[in-house]
């Protein structure tokens, strides 16, 4: 589904930062792939490259065997949903209008987008909040709205950028259960980044461990965490 080949990225500035160094990644369809690393390891940059929010300096990114350069970027993004740590909901819209937004961008009729949004809100268990202002929701409810919004386009891939970092442990578990359930139900490929090992062990099939812009270890979660080879992976296990 997603292939990243020898990707490098340096952020230019007064002090250039080498965010990604020769990164390779392969994510199969239907898989939940976790990318773990400390802050500044390059995981956000890597995730944002998968939907073209960042462009690599060298190397290639493929979505469904087609180089990202060959995709019309907004078409690609309509086939990938993304959820964020800080929710990024529009305060000028209520819950249902936030969920509708991706369909509004593709000019789906009002009736159809509201029908689909109702369906998505039911899927994330928030039908009763359809007309609420987003400011009245709890963190967990906001993230559910974000998930509904990300999935309304029926994307093939869901990208999760530290989706549970701002949530308490109980809500984190609820959101992870929801992502896992939706992944199975909708045959959704999920790529998530986190700095919490618990998130990886709870729902991921595969893990990539990042350190200083490189993937230092990669493989099935159980295999990687039961026999960690990289010092960074060992560090994560010790810290638990």
């Amino acid at each position: 589904m997603i292939k990243v080949n020898s990707v490098c990225k340096t952020f230019k500035g007064q002090v250039p930062v080498e965010a990604l160094k020769n990164v390779n990644l392969n994510v199969e369809a239907g898989e939940i792939h976790g990318i773990i690393g400390l802050s500044g390891a390059g995981k956000s940059t890597l995730l944002r490259m998968l939907n073209g929010l960042e462009v690599p300096d060298s190397g290639e990114v493929f979505f469904k065997d087609q180089n990202l350069k060959q995709w019309q970027i907004h078409k690609l993004r309509q086939r990938t949903g993304m959820i964020f740590q800080h929710f990024n909901l529009l305060s000028s819209r209520n819950v249902i209008d936030n969920v509708c937004l991706p369909l509004e961008l593709t000019k789906v009729s009002k009736k159809d987008r509201y029908e689909k949004a109702e369906e998505m809100l039911a899927l994330v268990g928030l039908s009763d909040k359809r007309n609420s202002a987003v400011s009245t929701l709890s963190g967990g409810q906001k993230q559910r709205v974000v998930i509904a919004r990300a999935l309304i386009n029926t994307p093939e891939v869901l990208l999760c950028d530290e989706a549970t970092s701002a949530l308490d442990p109980i809500t984190t578990n609820e959101i992870l259960d929801l992502i896992q359930k939706l992944s199975k139900q909708l045959n959704l490929t999920v790529v998530l980044i986190t700095h919490e090992m618990g998130v990886i062990t709870k729902i991921c099939h595969y893990v990539s461990v990042m350190d200083h812009g490189m993937i230092v270890e990669q493989g099935p979660v159980k295999e990687v965490f039961s026999n960690p080879k990289a010092i960074r992976t060992q560090g994560f296990i010790k810290a638990v």
Binding site: N51, L53, I73, H74, K75, L76, R77, Q78, T80, M82, F84, H86, N88, L90, L101, P102, L105, T106, R149, N153, L159
Partner: peptide, 14 residues
């Protein structure tokens, strides 16, 4: 906030 712009860009907005 730039995060909002980025979120909508990620949906495929022009």
């Amino acid at each position: 906030p730039y995060g909002l712009i980025e979120a909508v860009l990620a949906m495929g907005a022009k």
